[in-house]
């Protein structure tokens, strides 16, 4: 096989997504006037910045053979931590730092629980997702924390390069993750953790450190997404981020990362987030009811996993 053919067969999931995206873009630019306007492009980027951040973190967790169902809950509780101290008059940096520390701590707790008990990540993070959401409810008693200081809103959704700051944050996250995941030990060991943890351990690698780091990163990124969302809505509430882990998992799987881990695709994940964003945006521009979005997204995920499964089977036979 030529190098190009090999590359094509290995990157078939992202390439397929790019093709679907292009078709959608052509269709939308013909059907609607506003699709290719700069304003709409910015709009799509802004609306998907925090989704990108969450999906990239989730890709690392899934590549390591685990899953994190507590993402949305961590997002909510870390944002509430920040909002609470900000309302009490703390400076912006303190609120942001508190949110990031809280998020990282919650993620680390997930990782440690999984590492120590050796219980499935699905079960552990399902439990902690209820607990973290419960903390949010306990602290706020269900009442949203609103009217946050303008300086905090400037940080979370102020203008950088003509776009909300969240876009820059997502960009920085992706730019840092590319070398860490593909070209450094960290990502190399994360994927081996998903591929064969026993092999990694027997090579003398302290695997616990890597498992925990994936969850700590996910917690940190959840908090970052929480800051963006809270700044945009000017409100922190207990049911913020509901089901956002599902959106992230959906994008990761659609992007060609297998649910069992062992390898992961950052480009695929990024493209899948944009595809889902395009669908939302397109349906809005076409004035199709938002009720259809869920159905379309679900159907696309179904197509993506069926295509991936067929590809895998063909490879096994061929």
């Amino acid at each position: 096989m030529t190098t190009f053919k090999k590359w094509r067969s290995r990157q078939s999931a992202p390439l397929l997504l790019v093709a679907v995206c292009l078709v959608m873009m052509v269709f939308l630019s013909i059907e609607t006037r506003s699709f290719f306007s700069w304003k709409n492009v910015v709009n799509i980027l802004e609306a998907n910045s925090y989704r990108l951040i969450l999906a990239c973190g989730m890709m690392c967790v899934i590549a390591s053979g685990a899953i994190d169902l507590s993402t949305g809950s961590i997002l909510s509780f870390s944002a509430i931590c920040a909002a609470t101290v900000l309302q009490a008059g703390a400076p912006v940096w303190a609120g942001v730092l508190l949110a990031l520390v809280a998020g990282t701590a919650m993620g680390t707790i997930n990782g440690l629980l999984i590492q120590i008990t050796r219980i499935n990540a699905f079960i552990i993070t399902l439990a902690t997702s209820f607990m973290y959401r419960g903390l949010s409810l306990m602290v706020t008693k269900g009442i949203p924390i609103t009217k946050l200081p303008q300086s905090f809103r400037d940080f979370g959704c102020g203008d950088i390069f003509g776009m909300e700051s969240g876009v820059t944050m997502a960009f920085v996250v992706i730019v840092l993750l590319i070398p860490a995941f593909y070209f450094m030990r960290w990502g190399h060991y994360l994927t081996s953790l998903g591929g064969n943890p026993e092999a990694l351990k027997r090579s003398g690698v302290a695997i616990g450190r890597y498992r925990v780091s994936a969850f700590a990163l996910m917690g940190f990124l959840s908090a970052l997404a929480g800051i963006i969302i809270t700044a945009r809505l000017n409100s922190a509430e207990a049911n913020a981020g509901l089901n956002m882990e599902m959106d992230a998992i959906c994008a990761v799987i659609m992007g060609g990362t297998a649910l069992h881990g062992g390898s992961g695709s950052l480009p695929g994940t990024v493209i899948a987030v944009f595809l889902m964003g395009l669908i939302r945006n397109g349906l809005t521009l076409l004035s199709v009811s938002s009720y259809y979005q869920q159905f379309v997204t679900g159907a696309m995920l179904l197509c993506a996993v069926v295509a991936a499964e067929l590809r895998e089977r063909k490879r096994r036979i061929g």
């Binding site: 994927t191 092999a199 090579s203």
Partner: peptide
Amino acid sequence: LALDNYKNSVDNIFLGSELM
């Protein structure tokens, strides 16, 4: 054998003792 099936021969040979 303790191999990571998703990784290639080179990565498996150097698992845990990568050249940096």
